[in-house]
Design a protein around this nucleic acid. Structure first.
Length: 921
DNA sequence: GCGGTCACG
DNA sequence: GACGTACGTGACCGCT
């Protein structure tokens, strides 16, 4: 190894902005936001660890921006003028960045009047003059101008070194010409103007042709007449100014001499103090022995020793049956394998294109099965015959002794089911993450890789492109496909090694193994099955609605006295409240008048509203019909799968923080039912000839759970007797039962489930806040268990940061300690609701997981579960099976909590059948 | 990409 | 005294 000095210059400000946007919003043990600081600390550690290693630093400094003003503001007063202020949960992290740097005993350099980029450039120039090597830790494009022999850049998030070839690839010019390209194209983030109409492509073309900005401007008059020519001439001065603004100043006086930046290794004491201050526990582990302490909550990061970084060039493209057999044998011997399927499109009925496997970090492969396209001949044309590969993979994927690990494995189960493979047993890292960290961050693979592995995955878009030129994965060359696909399996395996050991100590095993994992195969089957939709019926409705919409439009424009876009809240608000002069328009924070249902209904009920009353009524009708047409009758026709001729939704297990499912593409959980017109859409969801649809729904499940969880004897006994619960509440609260008191009691019952506020209740019941408060007090006096439940739920969430359901599902509420009142209050209401909504979700998931087996055991092999709508399950079955299926379905649903949980209230299930979903209700 | 609106439990 | 007003979702639209 040479004794050459190697200076690392860390662009600290750039790093934290990037870390802030890429990493989840973690908080430390005191609830302070530290996501960016955590990322920054691990990054510094990595650098400090590499001291004296090949390519590692011998000298290092962190450079920060001291103030927002620099000499560039004197050149151009608009420089960085429209930059938004830093996000409020990032601001307090800036001083912590300095603390972190000091904890490593590293110099932190900032100078008034200069930007970090200029200081970095000046240090870099000085070091190069002395014959040192230089690495700039940043991914800022301005700094890329500095790249030259002996100076490179390092992107620690992508673990990528950037040399001149990177600049050429990205900007089409070598680093020394980059300033000219940046000057011409400008930079909207820094508010550097550049020349209008010139982006990276045009800029690099011009610079390559003419040399630099001055030469381009000089050549402009002789170009062929075009907008480009005009812009170059008209904005020549802006181009010259921009060229100066993007140039880096390389002669800033150095605050500390180069020699003072020498690294001394990682000093233990200050670093330990810093890590303990923030509770970065796994980093403390890395430091060595941890002081004896009662087991603190495990930190969100890794517990295992660091794995080697992902090496996408280490992955194998499997091109022979022998090679495939070797991978299968190794997986079988090991007893677990992470895998991922690649398909030609999204959705539960997509076509299989290839499969990747991972056995250990960097030990992963991709098995291309259905790639096509001419350029493959030069890449890797050899693919194993599809059927032969499937035949070999099936025993592995079905082997009860080999655990198959996927990230969102429901998708892979769907795809493989099309080829007769029933994947089992399974683990799912996405669901694990959800069961551990719901409410803290998302659970997509890219985000988890960044959080837990400090790794940035190859983006799907970077492989396939976007927009109209986007390719299907089957059109991707096998070399690129292997890098992407095998990396996904590798990352899944790495995530599994981090997340699986956390389940038991963090008490997430129960919900994972008893609720969420078991429901995956049932959901996959439902998605594959789909539901039949009567296209002709939808088309009839679309046409009918279209006619009515046109009529209403004419009438509305007539009342307004001018045509306008009714669907634009902005235009509608101006018509109503300015042109028509209606009073009481409320403007939201965006300055647009509110025109929502409440507002329009208020206008429609005005005594002196004049033409406004007609207007409001017609707009309400127009809105309803437009919504039904665009979202349902039009969109659903397009969702009918041409092969199965049914509609296949996709359920997200991690979409709702409370543990509910979410349905998308299309959403079949919000098909209209409340309005008469909307209900006609449910009649288009039908059974095949000879079959019927069966709808089974839990009656009042959330109120029943509240009665159990909050221990309210009157509610419990009312449910045991089978009484009408809202009547009972009305009797308790108002002493008499009639339509009015029952309606108010119902509103209050729901308000309780949602976390009540007197203001909210007052708004709903149209009474004063004082009266609402009196009603809430009375409710709590009659049902003191509810008051206790709310109190205990809030104490627990404030202390632990999360709520739990009866099955142990956690939902984290990081805003529960927010200093912003409405954020905190919002979190409190959500936390009151989460255990109830979440337990209900747990129960129906358990029913769904058991349903296929229960039906099979009863010999009902033609009964298919199709849909879940939170408290309702929809089945399709032969007419003749209805009588046999009803008691099975009823029993599975009613007993779904057992034996894990014994509820003190019965779960009521109501069942209906009919030829259509509408008729089954 | 965001806010407004509205469909559901 | 201002703030904004019930919990959880997803899709579509207009607008930038």
């Amino acid at each position: 190894m040479s004794s050459q000095n190697h200076l690392y210059l860390v662009d600290g400000s750039g790093y934290i902005f990037r870390a802030y946007h890429r990493l989840p919003p973690l908080t430390n043990i005191r609830g302070e936001p530290v996501g960016a600081v955590y990322g920054y600390t691990t990054m510094l550690w990595k650098l400090a660890d590499a001291l004296h290693k090949a390519d590692g630093p011998t000298h290092l400094a962190v450079i920060l921006d001291k103030s927002s003003k620099s000499f560039r503001n004197d050149l151009y007063d608009q420089y960085k003028a429209q930059r938004p202020p830093a996000p409020e949960d990032l601001v307090p992290q800036f001083p912590m960045i300095r603390d972190a740097t000091r904890a490593f005993s590293l110099p932190c350099i900032e100078e008034e009047g200069f930007e970090a980029d200029d200081i970095i450039a000046s240090y870099a120039r000085a070091a190069l003059r002395d014959g040192w090597r230089v690495t700039i830790v940043s991914s800022d494009k301005d700094l890329m101008q500095l790249i030259e022999p002996g100076l490179d850049m390092l992107d620690t998030m992508k673990n990528e070194r950037l040399g001149p070839e990177h600049v050429i690839e990205k900007f089409g010019v070598p680093p020394e010409k980059l300033g000219d390209v940046l000057g011409l194209m400008g930079d909207s983030v820094d508010n550097v103007p550049g020349v209008p109409g010139i982006g990276p492509k045009t800029a690099s073309k011009l610079v390559n042709e003419f040399g630099d900005v001055e030469a381009v401007l000089a050549a402009a008059p002789s170009m062929k007449p075009s907008k480009l020519r005009d812009n170059l001439i008209e904005h020549a001065e802006m181009a010259r100014l921009s060229r100066v603004l993007v140039a880096l100043k390389e002669d800033v006086p150095l605050p500390d001499p180069l020699e003072d930046l020498a690294m001394k290794g990682i000093p233990e004491a200050p670093l330990r103090a810093f890590l303990e201050h923030h509770g970065f526990r796994s980093l403390l582990n890395r430091l060595g022995t941890v002081a004896d302490a009662p087991a603190p909550p495990p930190s969100p990061e890794a517990v295992l020793p660091q794995d080697p970084p992902c090496n996408v060039d280490a992955y194998e493209a499997v091109d022979t049956l022998d090679a495939l057999d070797r991978w299968i044998a190794a997986a079988t011997a090991q007893g677990f394998v992470a895998f991922d399927t690649e398909t030609d499109s999204l959705g539960p009925r997509s076509g299989l294109v290839g499969i990747s496997l991972a056995l250990a970090p960097n030990r992963a492969c991709y098995i291309p099965l259905a790639h096509v396209g001419g350029d493959l001949l030069s890449d890797n044309p050899v693919q194993i015959p599809f059927d032969a590969a499937i035949a070999r993979l099936k025993p592995l994927l079905e082997d009860p002794a080999v655990l198959k690990i996927g990230h969102n494995i429901k998708y892979d189960i769907c795809v493989l089911a099309a080829h007769g493979i029933a994947v089992a047993p399974i683990d799912d890292t996405m669901v694990m993450s959800f069961n551990l960290d719901a409410g803290l961050h998302g659970h997509g693979m890219d985000e988890l890789a960044a959080t837990h592995l400090d790794h940035s995955c190859i983006a799907f878009k970077d492989v396939t492109g976007t927009g109209k030129n986007q390719k299907g994965f089957h059109q991707i060359g096998i070399r690129d496909a292997t890098r992407y696909a095998a990396e996904d399996a590798d990352v899944t395996l790495r995530l599994w090694r981090r997340l699986k050991p956390r389940l038991a100590p963090e008490h997430a095993t129960r919900v994972y193994e008893m609720v969420d994992r078991p429901v995956i195969p049932a959901l996959a089957a439902m998605e594959r099955e789909g539901i039949k939709v009567d296209r002709e019926e939808l088309a009839r409705l679309s046409a009918e609605f279209a006619g009515q919409i046109v009529e209403l439009e004419k009438e509305i424009h007539g009342i307004a006295g001018t045509p306008f876009t009714i669907g634009s809240p902005k235009q509608l608000g101006e018509i109503l409240f300015e042109r028509m002069g209606l009073k009481g328009g409320r403007k939201g924070k965006s300055g647009v008048y509110s025109t929502d249902v409440n507002e329009l209904e208020r206008i429609a009920a005005l005594k002196d509203g004049g033409p406004g009353i007609e207007m409001a009524r017609k707009v309400l009708d127009w809105r309803q019909l437009s919504k039904l047409k665009s979202t349902y009758t039009d969109a659903l026709q397009a969702e009918i799968n041409p092969v199965t001729r049914r509609v296949h939704t996709s359920y997200s297990l991690t979409g709702a923080q409370t543990g509910r499912l979410a349905s998308n593409d299309p959403n079949l959980q919000n098909i209209p039912v409340r309005s008469e017109t909307g209900r006609r859409i449910r009649d288009a969801f039908v059974a095949e000839p000879g079959n019927v649809l069966l709808s089974a729904d839990y009656s009042q499940i959330e109120l029943r759970l509240a009665a159990h969880m909050a221990d309210v004897p009157q509610l419990r006994e009312a449910f045991l007797r089978g009484d009408d619960i809202h009547n009972m509440t009305a009797q308790e609260l108002f002493g008499e039962v009639n339509r009015d008191t029952r309606g108010r009691a119902k509103t209050i019952n729901f308000a309780i489930l949602y976390g009540i506020s007197r203001w909210g209740l007052a708004g709903r019941l149209e009474i004063t806040a004082d009266d609402a408060q009196a009603m809430i007090d009375r409710y709590f006096d009659r049902f003191p268990g509810i008051r206790n439940y709310i109190h205990e739920t809030l104490s627990a969430v404030r202390e632990k940061g999360y709520t739990t359901t009866l099955f142990g599902r956690k939902t984290h509420f990081s805003r529960i300690k927010s200093s912003v009142q409405h954020e905190r209050q919002g979190a409190e209401r959500a936390a009151i609701n989460a255990p109830i909504q979440g337990t209900s979700a747990d129960i129906i998931k358990r029913a769904m997981a058991r349903m296929p087996g229960a039906l099979r055991d009863a010999g009902l092999t033609n009964v298919r579960m199709l849909l879940q709508v939170h408290d309702e399950l929809v089945f399709e079955l032969p007419e003749g099976d209805v009588d046999a299926a009803k008691p099975i379905i009823e029993h599975v649903m009613a007993s779904a909590a057992e034996p894990a949980i014994k509820l003190s209230v019965p779960l009521g299930v109501e069942i209906g059948t009919g030829k259509s979903w509408g008729a089954a209700h």
